[in-house]
Simulated assay, not measured.
Amino acid sequence: MSPGRHLTTLVLLALGALAVPAHAATIQIVMENLVVSPAEVSAKVGDTIEWINKDVLAHTATAKNGDFDVTIAPKKTVTSVLSKAGTVDYFCRYHPNMKAVLKIAP
């Protein structure tokens, strides 16, 4: 391979690496024994939250600022994709002592 062609290949490989979008993460938040765990999560816009309810009671993940309100049936999992950056305090409407925070980066 000529030096010029080798350089072109390297440039194309580098550009291809830059064009690959970052993979969104899936983050699990568990509700069990009337506790949200973890109580504080850092995530990014585009990440998926798996809300896992291990209790025999229904729960919600209700943002205090109105950004989301997810209902999770007993022994079920619900997913939602984060679409907005910011720090969001949320709680369970049925059990207001269940509180947590999502820190969502752009």
Rank of each mutant, 00 (worst) to 15 (best):
M1Q: 07
M1T: 05
M1L: 11
P3G: 02
P3C: 06
H6T: 04
L7A: 07
T8D: 13
T8Y: 07
T9C: 07
L10Q: 03
L12V: 02
L13W: 05
G16V: 03
A17G: 07
V20M: 11
V20H: 06
P21D: 04
P21T: 00
P21R: 05
A22K: 12
A22M: 09
H23M: 11
A24P: 05
T26S: 13
Q28S: 14
Q28E: 15
Q28D: 15
N33A: 12
N33D: 15
N33Y: 13
V36D: 03
S37V: 00
P38K: 09
P38W: 07
P38L: 08
E40C: 04
E40Y: 05
E40D: 07
V41F: 05
V41Y: 07
S42W: 04
S42H: 06
K44T: 01
V45W: 04
V45L: 03
D47K: 04
T48E: 07
W51D: 01
W51V: 00
W51P: 00
I52H: 08
I52E: 12
N53H: 08
N53M: 11
D55K: 06
D55L: 06
D55Y: 09
L57K: 13
L57W: 07
L57R: 06
A58M: 12
H59P: 01
T62S: 11
A63K: 03
N65P: 06
N65W: 08
G66R: 10
D69R: 09
V70Q: 14
T71D: 00
T71I: 03
I72F: 07
A73L: 14
A73R: 13
K75L: 05
K75N: 06
K75I: 01
T77K: 15
T77Y: 14
T77G: 09
V78T: 02
T79D: 08
S80P: 07
V81S: 13
V81C: 10
L82W: 03
L82S: 03
S83I: 11
S83R: 15
S83L: 12
T87Y: 06
T87F: 10
V88A: 11
V88W: 12
Y90Q: 09
Y90I: 06
F91E: 14
C92V: 01
R93Q: 08
R93P: 00
Y94C: 01
P96K: 05
P96D: 04
P96T: 06
P96I: 05
N97E: 05
N97L: 08
M98V: 09
K99C: 02
A100P: 08
A100T: 07
V101G: 05
K103L: 15
A105T: 10
P106V: 04
P106M: 11
P106A: 14
